[in-house]
Simulated assay, not measured.
Amino acid sequence: MSTTQVYRIWIKSTPEKIWAAITDPEWNARYGYGAPQFYELRKGGRFHSTATQEMKDYATANNFTMADTIADGEILEVDPPRRLVQTWRMLMDPTTAAEPFTTLTYDIEDVTHGVCRLTITHELTDAPAHAALVQGTTEPGAEGGGGWAWVLSDLKSLLETGARLTD
């Protein structure tokens, strides 16, 4: 099965600020699901994301174990502040952890007058659980189910207003 999902958003910001918000754990822990992401920004470098205490507490309260590393991958291409290509795999769930690595591409384009277009392309070949996860859900009350659309919306809000969607 070959699936590619593309998400695009326009942000009133600079490529450098968007790049930092994606790759700097001080920034990326402030939006989306709040889990810091760490990048070795070189070809072949490591990517990983760690569980927050809130995630671990939720797991404990619901009788399951939360791994310290909740996502991992490898950097395939780095062109700051324009393009980042990496492999990506979610480890929080046994189903996604058993699937092959997927490929995630961030493209940042300076469009006009201080506005940038951020495009996320997620290639999800043979990874149906990942595809469902990152697509998100529109069901009311689906905690943590917003996928890439939620992450991008929260990133945009943070960069443009200084506040998260949930603040």
Rank of each mutant, 00 (worst) to 15 (best):
T105V: 13
I120E: 04
V111N: 07
R89P: 07
P81G: 11
P15T: 12
W27T: 04
V151I: 07
V134W: 15
A98N: 13
V78Q: 02
H48A: 05
P100C: 07
L155I: 11
G114H: 14
A163R: 13
T14F: 00
T87H: 11
P140S: 14
G162N: 14
D107S: 11
A97G: 12
D154Q: 03
A98E: 06
A129L: 09
D167P: 10
A20S: 03
L165N: 06
E26N: 01
A163S: 11
F38K: 00
V78W: 01
P81L: 13
P15S: 09
K17N: 04
M1I: 14
N62K: 14
T95W: 13
T125N: 14
T52K: 10
P25I: 01
T23N: 05
G144N: 03
V134L: 15
S153Y: 04
M1L: 10
G141M: 14
G136W: 13
A129D: 04
S49W: 02
W10F: 05
A142W: 15
T112M: 08
E16S: 04
R46V: 11
I11S: 03
Q37F: 01
T119P: 09
P94L: 05
L159G: 02
A51P: 03
T14G: 01
R164A: 10
S153E: 12
A129Q: 14
F38E: 02
D72C: 10
T161S: 01
V6Q: 08
H130F: 11
T87N: 08
L104I: 09
I22M: 05
S13E: 00
P25S: 00
N63R: 12
G147D: 04
E139L: 06
P128F: 13
I120F: 12
K156A: 03
L155S: 08
Y31K: 07
T65L: 09
K17A: 00
D24P: 04
E77K: 11
D72V: 01
L76S: 07
P36I: 06
G141D: 02
D68T: 12
T161C: 05
W27L: 00
C116V: 11
P25K: 03
K156R: 14
D167K: 14
F101W: 10
P128V: 09
A142D: 14
P36F: 02
T166Y: 03
I75S: 00
E99T: 15
T23K: 15
G45F: 02
G32F: 04
A67Y: 10
S153V: 08
T125L: 09
G136D: 11
Y33S: 05
P100F: 13
V85E: 05
S153Q: 12
L133D: 08
L124F: 10
P94N: 00
G45Y: 03
D68Y: 09
C116I: 12
H122W: 14
R164N: 10
E109T: 15
A97N: 03
